[in-house]
Simulated assay, not measured.
Amino acid sequence: MSKTLMGTILIVDDNLSELELISHYLREGGYTVINAVGAKEALNKVLEQKPDVIITDVVMPGMSGFELCRRLKTHPDTEKVPIVICSSKDQEIDRLWGMKQGADAYLTKPFTREQILRAIKAVAV
Rank of each mutant, 00 (worst) to 15 (best):
L96K: 14
N44F: 09
M60K: 01
D94V: 04
Q91L: 13
I116L: 14
G65C: 01
K100M: 09
K50S: 12
Q91D: 11
L96R: 11
H24F: 14
L47P: 01
A122S: 12
Q101T: 03
V46C: 00
L16E: 09
L26K: 05
A122Q: 13
G30P: 08
K121Q: 13
R70F: 15
V46H: 00
T32E: 11
L72M: 11
Y106W: 10
Q49K: 12
E20T: 12
E79F: 03
T78N: 09
F66Q: 04
K89C: 15
V123I: 08
V58A: 08
K40L: 11
M60P: 01
P110Y: 03
T112Y: 05
F66Y: 15
A105G: 10
T4I: 15
D13F: 04
M63F: 06
N44P: 02
V123D: 04
Q115S: 15
Q115W: 06
K89R: 14
E79R: 02
Q101N: 10
M63C: 12
Q115C: 10
V12Y: 02
L117Q: 12
L21R: 07
D13K: 02
L5N: 12
T32R: 11
I54T: 00
Q91A: 15
K80Q: 12
I55H: 11
S64Y: 02
I9A: 02
Y31L: 02
K3P: 14
E20A: 11
P76M: 02
N15M: 11
S87M: 03
V37I: 13
G29S: 13
P61G: 05
E114D: 12
Q49C: 07
T112K: 09
P51T: 05
L96S: 08
S87F: 02
F111Q: 10
T74D: 15
T56A: 09
S87D: 02
T108H: 09
K89P: 04
A42W: 00
L26C: 14
P82S: 09
I93C: 06
K100S: 15
E28H: 07
V53E: 01
E92A: 13
G62S: 08
L21Y: 06
Q49G: 03
Q49W: 04
Y25R: 04
Q49H: 08
I55A: 12
L43N: 01
L117W: 06
V125N: 10
V123F: 10
M99A: 15
S17M: 08
S23I: 07
I9M: 07
T4C: 07
V58T: 06
M63E: 12
I22W: 03
S87W: 00
D104Y: 06
S87V: 02
A42Y: 00
A119T: 03
L96W: 03
L68Y: 01
F66A: 07
V125C: 09
L107A: 07
I54G: 00
K121N: 11
E114V: 12
P76C: 03
P61C: 06
E28W: 04
